[in-house]
Simulated scan of single mutants.
Amino acid sequence: MRPSPAAAGVSDLGFVAFTERNRPRYLRYASARLGVDSAVRSAVGATFAFAQAQWPWLLAQPGLALDVWEELRYQVGCESEHYPPVVRSVARLYDRLPQTSADSVLLCRHLGLDVDEASDLMGVERAAVEAGLVVAHRNLPFLVERGCM
């Protein structure tokens, strides 16, 4: 059964709101990971193209923000294969930590988001971000001590 035009409009409006809310933070994240403007735009653009194409399905899932965040991670990973790391300490995070830990450090320590904003952006519980920061501190204390995180 096809949704009514009014329902489709509400869905489209939801997608527009989601995009407007998250685009600046997605761009900052991708820029910190990739550094090359064309790669950043490509990764974020592909992420939102995925989200728009899958929007009705995503709305029915329990973790819309998490699903789109995972797509952003994937797109950034694809783009990063073509470019050398911009900041070595950021590359080290992703080489040595689980993705949620590395993302938590990048968002909270490098980009200055608070834990609640980072958890909202990634679509995970606050405790997952806090645990990610603890894991990073335990496993990469030399980066913390040098002020890289």
Rank of each mutant, 00 (worst) to 15 (best):
R2S: 15
R2A: 15
R2I: 14
S4N: 00
S4R: 08
S4W: 00
A7H: 09
A7C: 05
A8N: 05
V10P: 07
V10E: 14
S11Q: 15
D12A: 13
L13F: 12
G14S: 14
G14M: 15
V16Q: 13
A17P: 02
T19A: 15
E20V: 11
E20F: 10
R21Q: 15
R23M: 05
R25H: 07
Y26Q: 04
R28Y: 02
R28C: 06
S31Y: 10
S31C: 12
A32V: 04
R33D: 00
R33M: 01
L34A: 04
G35R: 04
S38P: 01
S38I: 12
A39V: 09
A39C: 07
R41Q: 11
S42Q: 13
G45I: 02
A46T: 08
A46L: 09
A46Q: 15
A46I: 06
A49G: 09
Q54A: 13
W57N: 14
W57A: 12
W57E: 12
W57Y: 13
A60P: 08
A60T: 12
A65P: 04
D67C: 07
V68S: 02
W69H: 11
W69I: 05
E71S: 02
R73P: 00
R73Y: 00
Y74P: 00
Q75I: 13
Q75L: 12
Q75M: 14
C78L: 15
E79G: 06
S80K: 13
E81D: 11
Y83I: 11
P85E: 03
P85S: 08
S89R: 11
A91Y: 09
A91V: 05
R92G: 07
L93Q: 00
D95S: 12
D95I: 03
L97R: 05
P98E: 13
S101L: 05
S101K: 08
L106D: 00
L107V: 03
C108T: 06
H110I: 10
L111S: 06
G112A: 10
G112S: 13
L113D: 10
L113K: 10
D114P: 04
D114T: 05
E117W: 04
A118I: 03
V124Y: 01
E125P: 02
R126E: 09
R126K: 10
A127Q: 13
V129M: 06
V129W: 01
E130Q: 14
G132V: 04
G132T: 03
V134G: 04
V134L: 13
V134Q: 12
V135E: 11
V135M: 08
V135W: 07
H137G: 09
L140Y: 07
P141T: 05
E145A: 09
R146T: 08
G147F: 05
G147Q: 02
G147H: 02
M149F: 03
